[in-house]
Design a protein around this nucleic acid. Structure first.
Lengths: 252, 252
DNA sequence: CGTGGATTTGAATCACCTCAAAGGTCGTGG
DNA sequence: CCACGACCTTTGAGGTGATTCAAATCCACG
């Protein structure tokens, strides 16, 4: 079993057609021919370093991005300057679609570690979406998934207690790694405890205490950012999910 | 000034072309000709009574709906059966798009009062979206707006206190009525206090107390569901918005 | 090897919740 | 038209889970 420490791409993959992520990414369900057209408009830049911004709230939104390697967080700024993390984005996931029509990005995207992305200029993506029905459908699917994720977060933020939130979070990450072929029970969290607490609407100290308690109960094992899930049943139970139902935050 | 008690449509309006809401609704930015094509696939049924469901979480999703008159709430069900309201939907607003690709509605839609809707069958909308670029763009705009709304709600639910939540809520509703040509300061809330509290992630009692306190401070005046906003500046301040920035929950 | 940030732990506080009960409102049926 | 009941809203009192504040410890990195 690969671990999340492995890069999903051994070398730089300059084309969608040969990218190991294409079955999870935008090209999903595109024909070979359509995929080439999409590939033609994609720009692949140099890696972004940890802490750097991919784009900033209020910037003119010009592109949508697909994460190739690494991870990012997106967050909105409250008027008092506080940030609310709205999502973490792992390889193959799309960022920036919520600013598709708005002209400006409604949130900021910051790299959690060294990250490479595929940049898809919006005007050209827009044109292509008119020509390729499958691409349009995939874009709308992605937006629908995002809406369902956010609505699940609303449920989490307004109804779940600290334990339930952390369990939901761990299982969400677990399932997303699993879909990418990594271990569902042993992975490395790319984000800090502060980021987790912000995302879950809790204080850092609370998240820390929950992690400690989960470990005491032998539900998980933690070593810094390394996580091992020991008791999936309990975690699923806490999260309000059934292990059968593999669909978590990202799959409504 | 009209008040929200007036129906936005004097008589039944059987066509998008003559509907007073078309500038706010899906036909926005469509040409006369394209609007006719959209109009052709729209079904207009009999009114839904208060408390009735438009569709239910888990149902096969077959249509998108535009609210013609009245109001609905949409909510997701937690595993323990608790409901989390994800949105209120007033005239001209679209419901059901988040289930566009999913096959099943990821939430339930219930009428808050007698409500009429335009039903747009998804397969035909889907086909039409391939033919009419403007319609596709409008659909994606609508989904983008929904995403921004939900992310603003995440911010509200995890960072704002009770006062700030209620202020945000009142201003959101106010602005949405205003866009429809109604008074921004005097309106009738179509939903119960219980619904408001659920939506805002608070206990009913807390919402009630906040309303009482706002009234004592002469920031608002309430008479049951009737609301008058007296001190917009304070409310905007609480909500973390600037009165200049007219864009609230629905306009990121 | 030292430094600054991140994480953990402890103690005290607080905003909101829960429980309980008293009004209000609305629709229904007599 | 009024009385009744069901439900919604408001108000009060007390409890609590999570926060805040403070400080020790761990860790990554130059």
């Amino acid at each position: 079993m690969k671990t999340s420490a492995d890069a999903p791409l051994r070398g730089a993959q300059p084309h969608c057609q040969t990218c190991s992520l294409n079955a999870l990414c935008l090209p999903l369900s595109l024909t070979e021919n359509d995929m080439e057209k999409l590939d033609d408009i994609i720009r692949r830049g140099r890696p972004i370093q940890k802490g750097q911004l991919l784009f900033k709230q209020g910037d003119e939104s010009q592109s949508v991005f697909a994460v190739r390697t690494g991870a990012l967080k997106t967050y909105t700024l409250a008027s008092n300057g506080e940030e609310q993390i709205t999502g973490f984005h792992l390889a193959s996931e799309l960022i920036g679609l919520s600013g598709y029509d708005a002209g400006k990005y409604p949130l900021t995207a910051k790299a959690l570690e060294t990250t490479t992305v595929c940049e898809i200029p919006m005007p050209q993506l827009d044109d292509l979406a008119d020509d390729l029905p499958d691409l349009r459908k995939q874009l709308m699917r992605t937006m629908g998934t995002e809406i369902r994720h956010d609505q699940n977060m609303m449920l989490l933020l307004s109804k779940k207690n600290a334990d339930e939130r952390v369990a939901s979070f761990l299982l969400d990450i677990s399932q997303r790694y699993q879909r990418r072929g990594f271990s569902a029970t042993h992975f490395r969290l790319p984000m800090s405890r502060v980021d987790i607490s912000n995302y879950l609407g809790l204080a850092v100290e609370t998240v820390s205490r929950v992690f400690t308690r989960f470990q005491k109960n032998e539900w998980i094992e933690t070593q810094g950012k390394e996580i091992i899930l020991l008791d999936n049943n309990t975690l699923y139970d806490l999260a309000g999910l059934t292990p059968v139902n593999e669909k978590c935050l990202h799959e409504a």
